[in-house]
Amino acid sequence: MSGGLDGPAADGPVTATIGDPGRAHTEVRPRLRSDPAQPPDTVVDHGTAVSLEVRAASVRGLSHRESGTPRQDAYGFALTADEQHLVVVVADGVSAGALSHEAAAFVGRRGPREVVRHLDAGTPPELLPWSEVFTGLAATILAEGARSLLRAEPGRFAAHPPEEGDVAAAMATTATFLICPTTPPRGGERHVHLAWIGDSPAWALDPDGGWHNLSGIKGAGAEVTSSRVEALPRIPRDPAALPRAAYPLRDDWTLLVMTDGTGDPLGPAHGEVAGQLATWWRRPPPPLVFADQVGFGRRSYDDDRTVVSIWPGGGPEPG
């Protein structure tokens, strides 16, 4: 394993890398965000939800750091009122949209709350009306996005307010949801539920370092990879056909929901990146170390990165 903690200089800062970090990782000088309304370069969270240990980090990619453009990824979570379920979402703003970071932020803020509302009303996770959730989020993005566009380009929309197509061209985001019970049912495995639009993958990591995809791998089976992404606020004609999944999960497995900034270098999860991340994330690392690891240097991977990790079995090993 050639991954490790290498700094650009012996006495310089130490940052995580996997394999050849490339030049950009050490040479890019990140531009400070010029507008305080832009999302911070990096956000980190950690904590416990009943028996779950959680880490989350969203890190601006090298290309956005270099150009001074905002991080377009976001995450969010919410706990049901009875604290029986944790709801997690990651959102990857589509890079073609100049305001996609706002769409991702909406999904991160409102998505988990919306799912929790259904759970709190007594809907069990397996019956969750996902098409209603996604349709509602799309409507939120269209409404909020129209206001943002008016603010951003008042001249262009002086005569006609922005239409849905204008908003969808300016901001779009993936959304991958995970619902995880906070306590295991007596004597059994936890049942996790997922639903997603777009290509932000969810994985489970077993104690032997094996990776198990929960949501489909980008580009798998396709000879020519397409950069076209399914994304909110566009909803498929039949929203009920949006993918969803449910899995039983053992308490010594790690759950990870991520954007493709991490999913792409992970690939089909049997190479160097998979090995190093498994080593790092078998047990919960300290939160700031986790954020650094999410931003690992690897040649030619310069996209925003976001990972929310859940360790159902709780905290770090004693000692």
């Binding site: 394999g19 580009g219 690939g267 190479g271 030619s300 991977y301």
Partner: peptide, 8 residues
């Protein structure tokens, strides 16, 4: 699916 990123 490659693991090393894209090259031109």
């Amino acid at each position: 699916m490659s693991e090393q990123g894209i090259l031109l």
